[in-house]
Simulated scan of single mutants.
Amino acid sequence: MHWATGLLLFVATVLGMEGFAYVAHRWLMHGPGWFLHESHHRPRHGNWELNDLYAAIFAVPSIMLLLGGVQLGWWPGFAWIGAGIAAYGAIYFGFHDVIVHKRLAHRYLPKSTYMKRIIQAHRLHHVVETKHGTVSFGFLWAPKPEDLKAELKRRNRVGVRAPVGAPAEHETDPVD
């Protein structure tokens, strides 16, 4: 396989993974897989949460495609696709776990409009503690925060947690 074709497969896979991540997050993690993902919408105690098992689960196809494409004589394009899945996983880890959730200590402050937008969208996703009623399921692309806030208001703030330190019947709007 020509390297340019492989590179095209790699880039297409990285971009396509955002669509896969949206679908998996929206209908799997906030659906039948909530029993694992719920830990991610609660305060974390320690370095790990049950939701981390999704990283291992989603790594299996990448590993299999890389192994098959490189070592087992499968179509070489599978190696490029497996590498694209792994690259998306690495990008996701960097954005989601390191930058947004600060699971590794850093002093990075977002300056670009893009970075501020995805961080704020993810935080708005996390103001909802329940399986239903949340917004913004993608990660490398996110709707405008003002659109997400309007959607949370339209849904009557179903599942939205009270601000930290406030009683449950707090009168202020935690979304504004």
Rank of each mutant, 00 (worst) to 15 (best):
Q120S: 07
A121V: 02
F95V: 15
T113Y: 12
W141E: 01
S62F: 01
F10A: 02
D97C: 11
Y114D: 11
N47I: 15
L7I: 15
E18G: 07
L65F: 13
A166E: 12
L28I: 15
L15Q: 07
D147V: 08
D176M: 07
I81K: 00
V135W: 01
E49N: 12
L7Y: 12
P163Y: 04
H132R: 13
L8S: 13
H2L: 13
V70P: 00
L67M: 12
P163W: 03
F139H: 05
V160S: 04
V135C: 09
A168P: 11
G46Q: 09
P61A: 10
V70G: 00
I119F: 04
G165E: 08
R117P: 03
I118D: 00
E49L: 03
P61C: 10
V164W: 04
G6M: 12
V14M: 05
P76T: 13
S112N: 06
Y54R: 07
Y92S: 08
Y54C: 09
S62C: 08
K116Q: 15
E151Y: 06
M1Q: 09
V128A: 03
R103A: 04
R155T: 14
V11D: 01
V98C: 08
W48T: 15
R161C: 08
L36H: 02
G31I: 14
L104E: 01
F10E: 01
R154N: 08
L140G: 03
Y92F: 14
A4F: 10
I85P: 00
Q71L: 15
W34A: 06
K149Q: 14
E146D: 12
G6Q: 10
P143R: 10
S62W: 00
D176I: 14
A150T: 14
D97K: 09
L140H: 11
F139S: 04
G68T: 13
H25D: 05
V160M: 04
A166S: 11
E171C: 08
G16C: 09
R44N: 09
Q120Y: 00
G69S: 10
L28A: 10
Y114T: 08
G46F: 08
P167Y: 04
Y114R: 10
A162Q: 08
G73V: 13
E169Q: 13
V60E: 02
A86G: 02
L9F: 11
A168T: 10
R44K: 13
V100C: 07
T134Q: 06
V164F: 05
Y54A: 11
L50Y: 07
L9I: 05
K111E: 11
L7Q: 06
M115S: 08
H37R: 06
G94C: 13
V128D: 00
L104T: 13
A168S: 11
W3D: 06
H126K: 11
H122M: 07
I85S: 00
L148G: 01
H106F: 07
P43T: 15
T134E: 02
A150N: 10
W27H: 14
W80G: 00
A142L: 03
A56S: 08
L53F: 14
G69P: 03
E49F: 02
F93A: 08
I91R: 00
V160C: 05
V127E: 00
L36C: 04
M17Y: 09
H37Q: 06
V23P: 00
P43Y: 10
F78V: 07
A90F: 13
G16L: 09
P143L: 06
M64S: 09
W74H: 06
I119G: 01
A162S: 14
L148E: 02
F58T: 14
D176Q: 12
I85A: 00
D52K: 05
R117M: 13
I81V: 15
I63N: 01
